[in-house]
Design a binder for these strands. Structure first.
Lengths: 220, 220
DNA sequence: AAAATTTTTATGGTTGACCTTATTATTCCA
DNA sequence: TGGAATAATAAGGTCAACCATAAAAATTTT
């Protein structure tokens, strides 16, 4: 099916796009931001990925994963999240560092390895950050959840997953106990996109809106 | 200690040098051959590695790992072989494919990961190919063994390790049962660097001299 | 509709690790 | 010792993925 070896860069772009595709068209600028490259570089890359049939780019509108691109991205994310499970459950790596390490390993993982790893782990369904693990054929659907940033004042919610990837962000969330499985209540929303104040486990915690977007919850 | 991130290429060169250093000066040409690059490329790389203080190159004589280079190489090999153990023992990957997969993973492995993996595996002392795993500080010494190619006619030997890395070579050795732990006897040595004929497990097996160099044995 | 902002394209530059094709230097061997 | 083989250097090229700067195009805001 997929004979061409994808570069690390390609994998990072596809992964980022899939993770951002709750909006099903992604602005190239946002993508560049998330990946820490310039908009020019991201545009160049979109051209390359377009030529490979992995993304479709409508100028001035945004980019989309093609069917093929989505399948490839699913596989990349699968590998990544399986490694997260291994690192967390078996190697006892710090929760906040797991993503980062798994990301490197992901790029170095052949399909046979992926499936052997899945088997070894007992085919887990979610990673330690609560995100679902795509199926072996690369298929996946987004979690049925909304970002914490959209929760109304006073409402309580159950944290399903944390979609952040940066280690320092994950570390912060861990310290504040905003983790999959926890319940939080929004006790204050400051004006001007100010921070949310959350009550979690008996303590009040401030959380900036940008960070709150990475926390996926279900209202309870 | 080691703050600079080494490139994948650098790691491959250092690893190859360490694995070839039963002779303690390595001809750049041999190195190029083993790595599948041209002599020119290998020379260029030796200059770069020399500048980084990892190798010392005496023109027309050969290259040597420096103390620092040897330590780094030891760490690279440690990572590699620990992954080999994991892939073979836990993921049940084919013996002949283990090296290849472990090699990719090695490049993506941070020190914290390495030690967590060693712990998980119970600090194994040898990889599935029988090679010793360097210590956490990067130190290692070569196996006390000689290549099968140097065994005299009629002599019996115990296979300690297989130093080959190419999957097809490993596959061949596996099929012929020339594996760590086995005993072999040299029953014929053809002239003109012709193949050895070995008796192993009741069967006669032909083995070319170049391949026999990769089989490390102890006379019994 | 004009102004401001965001996107895209164009052009040219860098880096690392390769490559080829000479040319020069050294070592080995008969 | 003289030629063959091997090793090293020089010069110039490629490729992917970045970068910066600048100009053009489209969209959004006012």
């Amino acid at each position: 099916m997929n004979l061409k070896p994808l570069s690390e860069s390609t994998e990072m772009y596809l992964k980022a796009m899939a993770e951002m595709s709750y909006q099903d068209v992604v602005a190239v600028g946002r993508l560049a931001e998330r990946l820490g490259v310039t908009a020019v570089s991201a545009n160049e890359m979109m051209r390359r990925l377009g030529e490979q049939g992995l993304v479709s780019h409508t100028p001035y509108k945004g980019v989309n994963l093609t069917k093929k691109g989505r399948e490839v991205a699913g596989n990349v994310i699968r590998r990544q999240r399986l490694w997260e499970c291994f690192l967390y459950d078996h190697l006892k790596i710090e929760w906040s560092q797991v993503y980062e390490f798994a990301c490197s390993l992901e790029h170095a993982t052949a399909p046979e390895l992926t499936e052997a790893l899945a088997e070894f782990l007992g085919n887990p369904k979610t990673c330690p950050r609560g995100n679902p693990i795509p199926a072996a054929d690369g298929s996946f659907k987004p979690l049925d959840a909304i970002p914490l940033s959209e929760i109304k004042l006073g409402q309580a919610a159950h944290v399903l997953a944390v979609n952040a990837t940066a280690t320092d962000v994950l570390k912060y969330l861990q310290e504040k106990n905003i983790l999959p499985g926890r319940d939080v209540t929004v006790v204050e929303v400051a004006p001007m996109q100010g921070p949310l104040t959350l009550r979690v486990g008996g303590k009040d915690v401030a959380l900036g809106l940008p960070m709150a977007e990475f926390v996926l919850v279900k209202i309870i």
